[in-house]
């Protein structure tokens, strides 16, 4: 599994698309998927390279539904061990006044640590430039 992290609109998806240019890819928007499915499980059809985008939004939705994001993410990694998982960095701001927002933001950070720990490769993207940090 490859984990890609970086701020909003930094070119994370484009970076990965370029890297796997010559291969067949299947891009899944985790945000849409989880909202439609109303479930913590991911139904993803197989392709050569599965790219799961916006995982941070899915993590927030899973928490809002009262489920464990760690369990869902661990299952996803098990089901798709070769996937590329992309997440926005959301923890680099002023602490939100709203308690739920605050807790969700921190939890996304912790789940990102889990993803990075499980990944064979971690890439951080800033201004379209990817830096391999693991």
């Amino acid at each position: 599994m490859i984990f890609v992290i970086g701020g909003y609109s930094q070119g994370k998806l484009d970076y990965i698309k370029k890297r796997f240019m010559s291969e067949k890819i299947n891009i899944i928007d985790a945000a849409e998927l989880i909202i439609d499915a109303k479930s913590e499980y991911f139904e993803i059809s197989s392709a050569q390279i599965v790219i799961i985008n916006n995982i941070n939004i899915a993590i927030a939705d899973i928490i809002k539904n009262g489920k464990s994001p760690e369990d869902a993410i661990k299952k996803m990694i098990k089901d798709y061990p070769d996937a590329v998982i992309i997440s926005d960095e959301v923890g680099n701001g002023i602490v939100p006044v709203d308690k739920n927002e605050r807790l969700i933001r921190e939890k996304i950070g912790r789940v990102q640590c889990l993803l990075a720990n499980e990944a064979e490769e971690v890439i951080r993207v800033i201004c379209g430039i990817g830096q391999r940090i693991k």
């Binding site: 923890g91 680099n92 701001g93 933001r105 921190e106 950070g109 990102q112 640590c113």
Partner: peptide
């Protein structure tokens, strides 16, 4: 240095 939940 790091963000919220970054493991700093």
């Amino acid at each position: 240095y790091g963000g919220s939940g970054s493991g700093k």
